[in-house]
Nucleic acid binder design. Structure first.
Lengths: 300, 300
DNA sequence: CGGCTATTTGAGATCTTTCAAATTATGTGG
DNA sequence: CCACATAATTTGAAAGATCTCAAATAGCCG
């Protein structure tokens, strides 16, 4: 299923940083690093996962959290009736497995969309660590709380936006995330299939395709297979505001919504168009990251 | 906005008029349906909120978490474009405000659907408490993790189910929650408007009404204003499985899905049809609860 | 008893989905 | 590197579900 790899060197602990959860992850990073001066730096295990393989299967006993170090994943939730839905596309810096804490078993399948590398954080260790590292528990709360908000954003999108708007937001968000990874905001590769996108956005694959074509015809984006280019970011954002409801025109007035997601979400929204002041995301994984290209595909 | 009530005395056992007025961490634990582990009992403040009033407004600085002691609420999330969506209908025992932890400000409006009473838990105190009360932090993680799963369930519902199924699940879940409150599973009163239901389920008010009528005509439920009676629980559950997709018939086979939400959700889902082994939810709030009827309406 | 709000209903308009089929990649063996 | 089989994506046309608009009812408040 996955390859267990080297234990990271006993030097400072390295934990992914930035990107979506940016601040949170960075904090986690900073905190987990405990004493940079090397007193008792805990060591975490790395795992690599081959494209298409599961990192986690729903139903497995919950024991560890993972932080994505490189590569792309999708998380899939299935209710007992077999209805499944892609919940998200975690990438570098994202924390995986948190939904398992409560029930003591993972509730999502986590599948690698590209070869990937993750860091394993035994939940027990974390609890112990929290007693030593001031603020660690709070950081964890913070990260999970952000995840709550992410899901709420997804809910609003599926519940209140038309297909075109959902897709528009999706692309903007993806672009922003890519930017956090050090890539271009408006030129990136989709790592997931139309199927996955459709599941994530609550629409059929054909609708995804058609809508993509539509946006393309409008000249707002360019689509070449899975390569996306956002030609008109402003227009895309505008479309992202289009509510499903017709009477909801007020939401479309160009006056509102200067940012895709901002207001009350505050620093919480690690998605959408807020670049989080584009901090460049240092990569503490020297040795490792060397073998991984800028977009997360493991090359070595 | 809300009425601040007595701050309990700094002593351990809080007593007022010979009656316990406030909650201890132990009670909090019990209320939150966690195992208690008797330790010292810090004292918390209560707040009452009048029907229709806000307990929390999105954007306010995050400082405290609330545990619902009595009454019903709705939580509403709004993205910056004005698209709002009801995220849930918290009731007794539910924890409110967790989405504010990450961004240090609340992200949802929380409105009382009936007169209500909540317990205030300053987040800072909680952190401190966690150092004293073993397992408290883990309990908190657990609770928030469950919230993540609840949201995921909501996402699947909106994303993958047809209107009828969404409503069916909604009613079953509500019934189960009412049962946890000591009421009947199949006869209860909706505390929210059709509007709220529609927002929560991602459909228009007219669709809610029509679907309700439909279920009623099928003889599965009885609707009298906001009074709901579930006549055929089995049929309702069956309908709750109806995927939006036509080709997803496998999900509808009567073989699968014995429970509405169970499998991987494990103990996590305290909603839906799993009665959570029907723990009767003791009410540690003697003095207070006396003035509150069994369905949460404050009568005193 | 009004005035108002919430809910229900009807009928047509729309957006998505469904079903079918064409078209474009991707992968494999020679 | 080509040919073939398979998977992914795109497109078209029709069916279906949900929404929109309009209007009738029903309930609640003073």
């Amino acid at each position: 299923m996955f390859t267990k790899s080297r234990k990271s060197n006993p030097v400072n602990v390295s934990v992914a940083n930035g990107q979506k959860v940016c601040s949170s992850s960075r904090e986690l990073n900073r905190l987990l690093r405990v004493d940079e001066d090397g007193s008792d730096s805990p060591v975490f295990t790395h795992r690599t996962v081959k494209e298409g393989k599961h990192l986690i299967r729903a139903g497995q006993k919950f024991e560890v959290l993972y932080v994505v170090n490189a590569g792309f994943f999708k998380t899939v939730f299935s209710d007992d009736c077999g209805n499944e839905q892609v919940m998200g596309f975690p990438m570098k810096g994202d924390l995986l497995g948190t939904e398992g804490i409560g029930s003591q078993q993972y509730n999502n399948d986590v599948v690698a969309l590209t070869d990937a590398d993750v860091i394993e954080i035994p939940f027990e260790d974390l609890s112990a660590l929290a007693k030593l590292v001031p603020g660690l528990d709070e950081t964890m709360f913070r990260i999970i709380s952000q995840q709550l908000i992410q899901e709420q954003l997804a809910l609003v999108a599926i519940g209140a936006l038309c297909a075109e708007a959902r897709l528009a937001r999706f692309l903007m968000k993806l672009g922003d995330q890519m930017q956090l990874q050090g890539c271009s905001v408006d030129k990136f590769m989709l790592r997931m299939s139309r199927q996955d996108i459709g599941s994530y956005l609550g629409m059929k694959i054909e609708t995804v395709s058609r809508t993509l074509t539509l946006l393309s015809k409008k000249g707002i984006i360019t689509v070449d297979q899975r390569d996306i280019t956002i030609a008109d970011r402003t227009a895309l954002a505008e479309i992202g505001r289009k509510s499903r409801a017709k009477d909801d025109q007020l939401a479309q007035s160009s006056i509102q919504c200067p940012q895709m997601e901002a207001r009350k979400t505050g620093s919480s929204n690690r998605d959408l168009s807020k670049p989080d002041s584009g901090r460049p995301i240092a990569t503490p994984w020297s040795g490792l990251t060397d073998s991984i290209d800028s977009v997360g595909r493991v090359t070595g």
